[in-house]
Design a protein around this nucleic acid. Structure first.
Lengths: 256, 256
DNA sequence: GAGTGGTCTAGACCACTGA
DNA sequence: CAGTGGTCTAGACCACTCA
């Protein structure tokens, strides 16, 4: 058993037994954060099984019910995945997750189809001011810029600029050609797990270079998607701008 | 106590005590459905308080923990709202909910601002085939069509076509002028509660009529949003097409 | 201070998986 | 059939709201 005594009778429990008004955090949220910290630190790698509820509960000195609430919270955030009868696993950026959670463009006829990368180029340059601000970078930070063209149903439909902080992705250029599933690359090669993202959508005119790549007229309407992706530890990790033809595709959004 | 013996020792409990392989539904989900049915039936109106957990649990013959899981599920679906120390309430389509859950267009400078209706027209006609299909209507069904122009920061920015099944909204035309918050109208006047919606986004060219309304050039890029809204009982209730300028506004989408 | 939802516990039993 | 997560219970106590 390699998972021995690393957090026994933990120093948590801010229980506020008396009138501690502010700053009260329920035990299950403290447990949640403790587990999340260990996942971020790499104690359990993506795809690996966590110890069983019983083991974790007794290790951390809490009841199984409390531990379960912590795991439920992590599961609803997509950090872990639970399978009845099998165990609890650190969530992975497999094909399925990338396609459903992080790819919102759908074919009008075929529904969800995985995009195929048809062109990819990597370069480095100093970050602009807006890039530094969005990615929370220091004054002289460098960034990687990835340019990709991607096809759906065999038709080039997307042009992407991806911006990454260079220091979090050392020697990215040696990984060329980059795999189709780039978040899997972040995860496996650089230990960076994308947890969630916010997107801003606009309709824009196709400028000449994009029009040529996408095979549409200059001035045609394109859907522009600006994404800021956030890592497990809450830091901004990727800035992405996608321009997309929407004559045979559309972007889906669920309001709940 | 007006909420007497209406569901005592309920006929639920499909507990599968023996090897009932398929068709097993956990008790808390049965309770959830039972409560949802009563909300749909209007036993508790939007904004009203439900009985306390203790009362509901003993009424329905389940433990407080099980009842709580059912309420938690309804709360995470946005059907009810819980307030520690105050009670549990049927969710309402107030200004706040409409603005945050069902309005995704944001000003580049000001952030979230409520849109202002500057033009509104209501008419009735037979449903087209695609409308019948989307709204699950019969052969000769009629629909209401609402045309609206809406302004953000004092600038006309949105053109909307809203399609509703006529039989669910009797005498809608007598409610003109429609209030700004139209989901509140559905709820209060027609007992129709919008629960969630799916949207399809595209970039399109501004045609002449929209260009004039929005004050932009013909052929300018517009963001087109097609929405299908679903009621509490799961039926499709509204089809909506919005066209929007995105030179000073954008659409936000959260990926989690 | 009474009443509400929120947390925490301890234990029993059930459904599912895989060797 | 052993081990895992999922459900269900009963009861204690805590934090919050409002009269």
């Amino acid at each position: 058993m390699p998972d021995g005594n690393d957090a026994k009778a933990s120093p948590l429990r801010t229980k506020a037994t008396a009138g501690a008004r502010l700053g009260y955090t329920p035990l299950y949220l403290q447990v949640r954060q403790d587990l999340l910290d260990r996942i971020i630190a790499g104690t359990w790698q993506p795809g690996m099984a966590l110890p069983s509820e019983q083991q974790l509960a007794s290790q951390m000195g809490v009841s199984q019910g409390t531990l379960r609430k912590a795991l439920d919270a992590l599961a609803s955030d997509g950090v872990i995945v639970r399978h009845q009868g099998r165990g609890t696993f650190v969530a992975e950026h497999d094909q399925r997750r990338t396609l459903f959670q992080f790819f919102k463009i759908v074919s009008d006829e075929n529904g969800r189809i995985p995009p195929e990368t048809v062109y990819c180029q990597v370069s480095m340059r100093p970050a602009s001011e807006t890039e530094r601000e969005a990615l929370e970078l220091g004054k002289d930070a460098d960034i990687w810029v990835i340019l990709r063209h991607r096809a759906l149903n065999g038709q080039v439909a997307l042009v992407e600029d991806i911006v990454l902080p260079a220091d979090r992705f050392p020697q990215l250029d040696t990984k060329v050609p980059l795999p189709n599933n780039i978040y899997e690359l972040y995860e496996r090669q650089f230990s960076v797990t994308v947890a969630n993202a916010r997107e801003r959508l606009r309709a824009v005119r196709a400028e000449a270079p994009d029009a040529e790549i996408l095979g549409c007229a200059e001035g045609a309407p394109l859907l522009q998607i600006e994404r800021l992706a956030v890592a497990l530890d809450g830091s901004a990790i990727e800035l992405r701008r996608t321009r997309c033809r929407t004559d045979r595709f559309h972007y889906i959004s669920e309001l709940r």
